[in-house]
Simulated scan of single mutants.
Amino acid sequence: MLEHGGNLRDAAREYGRPLADWIDLSTGINPHWYAAPAPDANAWHRLPESDPALAAAACSYYDAPAMLPVAGTQAAIQALPRLRAPSRVVVAAPSYAEHAHHWGQQGHQLRQVPYAQLADAVDSCDVLVVCNPNNPTGERIAPALLLAWATRLAARGGWLVVDEAFGDTEAHASLGPHSGQPGLIVLRSIGKFFGLAGLRLGFVAAHPALLGQLADMLGPWAVSGPAQQVALAALTDTHWQNAMRERLRGEGDRLHQLLATHGIASSGTALFQWWPEDRAEAFWRHMAESGIWVRLFRHAAHGIRLGLPLDEHAWLRLQQALTAWKHT
């Protein structure tokens, strides 16, 4: 199993610090999560048949013509490679490691290509997988360019898979409105922007025929009844969404500036900052010794990703740890 952020129990065991004493900045998940309403009592009793209202709310929120709820986009990431015969697959690098992992496991011919070289790879692959904004670097590819690539791929039966898990604060850049065209697959997550990672719910936007194949592969009752009800409330709460977008943009700017004042030139999204770090392991260890868990990337991306602190106390501890690092 691949390593991911959020593994705070591993940190607690390794450093002998109780869970309650940690600040977890390792995931990029919104620390100001949506206050989930209590689901109806029968949501725990009934088999979780698909609620058409949830799919409709997702289509409205993500501005997509058709969407399939799934048990987290992870479920789709694992299933999509099984829907194709062996293909030439390019996964943008660095990016969320599960994409390359699962395409590689299913017998496809896999290449990982840096973002700067993707344009040259489009015509030599059958499937192109891109995170936009990218996780972990925050790099972006213009929607018009992605659509041009999707058209070229679809002309020969290929796919463009765009993971927009961190796209909620940049709705203008989403390919959701175009996802009805053959060969374009867009993945969206409830976990990041709404801060509901434990809900295990995401959505796939694509041509209805492909969504039907994916639904058949994932089988019945893919999303729990309580998860469907909570997500329906979150997706239709436009007041919360608008206020949270503004708040996250402000806090994202604050994090960027805080790092800059400590000599760190970072980039990212409203939810996280990233920078290549020559002393990445030492920085990660320093922060852990201060009770702050950040995400260390050792391989394709050698650097650090840092999410948003929850409150002023956490901001202060982060500032103090950064100041101490600056003077090491």
Score class of each variant (00 low, 15 high):
32 H>A: 07
22 W>L: 08
45 H>W: 14
18 P>H: 06
9 R>L: 13
74 Q>Y: 13
59 C>M: 07
58 A>V: 03
17 R>Y: 01
27 T>L: 08
48 P>T: 03
72 G>T: 02
85 A>R: 11
22 W>D: 03
45 H>G: 10
31 P>I: 12
10 D>E: 15
9 R>M: 14
78 Q>Y: 11
21 D>R: 05
50 S>M: 12
84 R>D: 10
42 N>L: 15
9 R>Q: 15
24 D>H: 05
60 S>H: 15
26 S>F: 06
41 A>D: 06
85 A>E: 12
14 E>Y: 11
31 P>Y: 06
34 Y>K: 03
76 A>H: 04
35 A>T: 12
36 A>R: 03
26 S>G: 11
83 L>N: 00
39 P>C: 10
73 T>Y: 08
85 A>K: 10
15 Y>P: 02
44 W>V: 08
42 N>T: 14
62 Y>K: 07
56 A>K: 12
84 R>P: 02
37 P>K: 07
54 L>W: 07
41 A>Y: 00
62 Y>Q: 02
58 A>S: 03
82 R>M: 10
17 R>M: 11
23 I>E: 08
17 R>K: 08
79 A>Q: 03
41 A>R: 08
35 A>E: 13
22 W>Q: 00
39 P>N: 08
27 T>S: 11
26 S>R: 04
78 Q>N: 13
49 E>A: 15
55 A>L: 12
64 A>P: 06
79 A>N: 09
70 V>C: 01
36 A>G: 01
33 W>K: 08
76 A>I: 04
36 A>D: 05
54 L>T: 01
67 M>E: 07
21 D>E: 10
23 I>H: 04
21 D>I: 06
31 P>V: 10
60 S>N: 15
79 A>R: 01
41 A>G: 08
19 L>R: 08
60 S>A: 14
39 P>R: 05
58 A>N: 02
88 R>I: 03
70 V>H: 09
25 L>G: 04
47 L>I: 15
86 P>I: 00
46 R>W: 13
84 R>N: 12
74 Q>A: 15
76 A>C: 05
79 A>Y: 00
72 G>Y: 02
22 W>K: 02
38 A>E: 15
71 A>K: 02
8 L>Y: 02
86 P>D: 00
42 N>P: 10
46 R>E: 09
24 D>E: 02
59 C>G: 07
32 H>S: 10
